[in-house]
Amino acid sequence: MPDKPNETPRTLPALDMDNTAYWTGGANGELLINRCDDCGYYVHPPTEFCPSCESCSVIPQPVSGRGEIITMTVNHRAWYPDMQVPYVVAMVAIEEQEDIHLITNIVDCDPLSVKIGDKVKVRFEQAEDLWIPLFAPHMETAA
């Protein structure tokens, strides 16, 4: 059960040498996605191998944290006691590379107002020693 009333109960991932940066970068406010040093291709889920050029020179690098919802659902079932419903489960494409998709929750908004195509920005929820990347609506401003 969560320690804080707004914290969502979660099954936490097992850390390994490939995914630790992704799950801990939020401690520094960074969304870290593995990127190939040779061809610049982002790689997710995290692995040490680049599927684009077959290089093994892949390291975690910070991205902007901005993205777009490409698909989503609103869940109305509380899977745990005291779980707040409804909530949004979404697939977000990151701004840097549209074929990198993160499965996440959309937070800090009315779940029934969320729609495909919405622009979002990462925020993090701490769970033990991990920092879960979540996304919230993000309005772009004109320069």
Rank of each mutant, 00 (worst) to 15 (best):
I70S: 00
I70T: 15
I70C: 09
I70L: 04
I70V: 15
I70A: 01
I70H: 12
T71G: 10
T71F: 12
T71M: 13
T71V: 11
T71Q: 13
M72K: 13
T73W: 04
T73C: 11
T73S: 13
T73F: 02
V74C: 15
V74H: 05
N75V: 15
N75F: 02
N75E: 08
R77I: 13
R77E: 04
R77G: 00
A78F: 11
A78R: 12
A78D: 11
W79K: 11
W79S: 10
W79N: 13
W79M: 10
W79E: 07
Y80P: 00
Y80R: 13
Y80Q: 13
Y80D: 09
P81G: 06
P81E: 12
P81C: 05
P81H: 09
D82Y: 03
D82L: 07
D82P: 00
M83V: 04
M83T: 07
M83D: 08
M83W: 03
M83C: 04
M83Y: 11
Q84P: 02
Q84V: 14
Q84R: 15
Q84F: 06
Q84G: 12
V85H: 06
V85I: 14
V85C: 09
V85P: 08
P86A: 08
P86C: 06
Y87S: 06
Y87I: 06
V88E: 04
V88H: 08
V88W: 04
V88A: 01
V88M: 04
V89L: 14
V89H: 02
V89Y: 02
V89N: 11
A90P: 00
A90D: 01
A90Y: 02
A90T: 01
M91D: 05
M91T: 02
M91L: 14
M91C: 03
V92F: 00
V92K: 00
V92P: 01
V92R: 00
V92T: 01
V92D: 00
A93V: 01
A93G: 04
A93S: 15
A93Q: 07
I94H: 10
I94F: 09
I94N: 08
E95G: 02
E95Y: 01
E96W: 03
E96K: 03
Q97N: 10
Q97L: 10
Q97G: 12
E98V: 07
E98M: 12
E98T: 13
D99R: 10
D99P: 08
D99H: 14
I100C: 05
I100G: 06
I100Q: 03
I100E: 07
I100S: 10
I100K: 06
I100V: 15
I100A: 09
I100T: 09
H101T: 05
H101I: 15
H101E: 07
H101V: 13
L102S: 06
L102I: 15
L102H: 11
L102T: 04
L102D: 08
L102C: 05
L102E: 09
